[in-house]
Design a binder for these strands. Structure first.
Lengths: 114, 114
DNA sequence: CCCTAACTTAACCAACAGGTTAATTAACCT
DNA sequence: AGGTTAATTAACCTGTTGGTTAAGTTAGGG
């Protein structure tokens, strides 16, 4: 629910928002600039909402510049989610090890491949 | 909506499901074994649903063993999401660095790990 | 052959997500 | 002051999520 990690993953679970993050990884952008590629598919308020989700997830910050709001990536926001996934690096390795052992046993016994 | 990455992140955006993954990182478990810590807070059908979400997200596999269903982590399922987050490695340098090297070694050729 | 164990499916419900249009705020420009 | 630009807030609608209970399936055991 309102725990940080859930909010972060929920924010990432939308292609529009991921595209916005990708845009921001190229540098600061105003709301209109971020919105531009999406305005054929959705309205400006929808974009505002997406940005708010990213903000509450801690992935984006907004600063005021006259009428415009400038958005930036907030790198710390990614940390927790990266660390969670890192937990499964071990699992990946182990499964690969098992595969390696299996392949070895197969080649040693000269069995036909499944 | 139904793109793989969105489904994976959506699956991860729930503390119950993340706890289930953590449980599975300790090894194979049946549905009842996975359910056990949650049965004070929710019913068994709710657990079944969560597992189905994890399955459709490609993070978990189920195999039949008599009446029981045995669940396992599906390490490849994490790959795409890890790769997306790697795009933001400047955000979280050290933690992703080792993972990046690992993924490269896996995808480029099947060499044994260091 | 029924009984129980281990799950899943069905039908339903409240809450929330993602979108809309219309109205509102805020800052700048003559 | 009034108008324009930039963005947000409000009110609403619809589909999905996460939970429920009750009924259904499937395999093994006495």
């Amino acid at each position: 629910m309102p725990d940080q990690l859930s909010q972060t993953f929920a924010a990432l679970a939308d292609p529009t928002r991921r595209a916005m993050l990708t845009r921001l990884s190229a540098g600061t952008a105003s709301v209109s600039e971020i919105a531009e590629p999406f305005l054929k598919q959705m309205s400006l308020p929808a974009v505002t909402k997406h940005l708010k989700v990213l903000e509450r997830a801690g992935l984006v910050t907004k600063t005021r510049d006259a009428q415009r709001r400038l958005c930036d990536l907030k790198p710390e926001g990614f940390k927790e989610s990266v660390e969670f996934l890192e937990q499964y690096r071990q699992a990946c390795e182990e499964s690969l090890d098992r595969l390696g052992v299996y392949l070895e046993s197969v080649t040693k016994q000269n069995k036909p491949l499944p």
